[in-house]
């Protein structure tokens, strides 16, 4: 196995996902298969190759810092399940 059950559980935590014991089993097998396939990349010597994160040769795109009208608050809040006084409402995180 390219990845262990324990690692899958750790990654799930990092990814903020929750799985049943069966799902962890299933993902361990499937991810191992995918990683075995992906490990094909190790056939290549890339020691002196520069990585390409982005294909287009543009870097920082700047604009003038001007005040412009933005979207209405109500429009932005319309998809939230919980709002109060024109704000998003979140669970209490400080005891």
């Amino acid at each position: 196995m390219a990845i262990s059950k324990c690692e899958v559980e750790h990654v799930a935590k990092l990814a903020r996902l929750k799985f049943s014991a069966e799902e962890i089993e299933e993902f361990t097998v499937q991810l191992s298969k995918i990683l075995d396939y992906v490990n094909k990349l190790n056939e290549l010597d890339t020691e002196n190759v520069e990585p390409t994160a982005h294909i287009v040769p543009i870097h920082n795109v700047f604009r003038e810092d001007e005040v412009k009208p933005s979207m209405d608050r109500e429009k932005i809040l319309i998809n939230a399940s919980y709002t109060e006084n024109g704000c998003f409402k979140v669970p209490k995180i400080i005891e």
């Binding site: 992906v38 990349l41 190790n42 290549l44 890339t46 190759v49 520069e50 990585p51 390409t52 994160a53 294909i55």
Partner: peptide
Amino acid sequence: AYYKKALKVRTLIK
């Protein structure tokens, strides 16, 4: 091992 490696292979394909 994975992400950076893949980006390097991206260069080779490009």
